[in-house]
Simulated assay, not measured.
Amino acid sequence: MAGESNWELERILLDIKADRAEPRHLPLEFLKDITRDFSDDLELGRGGFGVVYKGVLKNGEIVAVKRLKAALGIVDKQFENEAHLLRLKHENIVRFLGHCSESRHVVVKHEGRDCIAESQEKLLCLEYMPNGSLDRHIKDASSGLNWNERYKIIKGICSGLHFLHDENQTNTPVIHTDLKPANILLTSEMIPKITDFGLSRLFGEQQTRTYTESRGTHGYMAREFLLHGKITKKSDIFSLGVIVLEMITGNRDYPWSNGTTLPQDYVKHVRKFCPHAWYIL
């Protein structure tokens, strides 16, 4: 890899996007170059674990570069989780193109003096999704999604989740644990792709596990996961159910926010906002 020009690295990236090569390590300097040194102007979004930038190649092709927050103590686990899934290939899973883990020396101020410190950079390069996250499209009738489009998006999410749970190349169930509209990206054809595997768990023969610390997003977390840290495939299925209800109703004012919801409340909520959805789904 040493001595490879940016042109050669860009060609390799295009080969990976075209499924003619496997994801690989990418130099930090190359990722800095295509993001204009992580320019604010190229920022696509940010979350609890890092910032995503648009990477523009010389031929106009675009990739996404996720820069993990080095200050977080869990960044190594986040990087390990996502990098472990680099080779997952499915039309409803965001494609990983490469990764970077490098140290560099930076000048920082300490007690009024300039000091040299080591900074650890961890980045992931992914395919670019021009329509952003599903989060932006779940609003109301003004979102512009007709019923056929909503159905195709729901079906695609289900297909991607089934792949993670039962058909992926690791031969081990992958539990996402943070499935939500913000972690579902859309192509130019509105094909949904699941992303952000930083909190994911890979299960072996043991199909149920309990964690003392549960991380996820309230409103999308199953009760047993939220209260007891118990994780199974059903944890993701609960999150999927919430997303489906949001897609059907185009509304996020769901009734379980008060913590006293009964099963019939779910039914009433969907009938209230979309009485004809039952005939479609």
Rank of each mutant, 00 (worst) to 15 (best):
E4L: 15
N6A: 08
N6F: 12
I12Y: 01
L14I: 12
D15R: 13
K17S: 10
D19R: 13
L26M: 03
L28P: 01
L28Q: 02
F30V: 06
I34A: 11
D37K: 14
F38T: 09
S39C: 09
D40C: 06
F49N: 05
G50F: 08
G55Y: 02
G60I: 09
I62V: 15
V63I: 15
A64I: 01
V65P: 04
R67D: 01
K69Q: 11
F79K: 01
N81M: 02
E82W: 00
H84S: 15
L85K: 00
H90Q: 06
E91Q: 14
R95C: 10
S101V: 00
S101W: 00
E102W: 00
V108R: 11
H110V: 10
H110L: 09
R113S: 09
D114H: 14
E127L: 01
M129Q: 05
M129W: 07
P130N: 11
S133E: 06
S133F: 12
K139E: 06
K139G: 03
D140A: 10
D140H: 12
L145S: 07
N148Y: 04
R150I: 03
C158Q: 05
L161V: 08
H162N: 14
L164G: 05
D166F: 15
D166M: 11
Q169K: 14
T172R: 09
I175A: 08
D178H: 09
P181G: 05
P181K: 06
L185E: 03
L186D: 02
L186Y: 09
M190F: 15
I191R: 14
T195Y: 02
T195L: 02
T208E: 15
T210H: 03
T210N: 07
Y211T: 15
S214P: 11
H218Q: 15
G219D: 09
G219I: 02
G219K: 04
Y220D: 08
Y220K: 04
R223A: 11
F225K: 04
L227D: 15
I231S: 03
S235Y: 02
L240A: 06
G241N: 07
I243E: 04
L245Y: 07
I248Y: 04
I248H: 01
N251K: 13
N251R: 12
R252T: 08
Y254I: 11
W256Y: 10
S257V: 13
N258M: 04
G259Y: 07
G259D: 12
Q264R: 06
Q264W: 04
Y266P: 00
V267N: 06
K268S: 12
H269K: 03
K272C: 09
H276Y: 08
L281F: 11
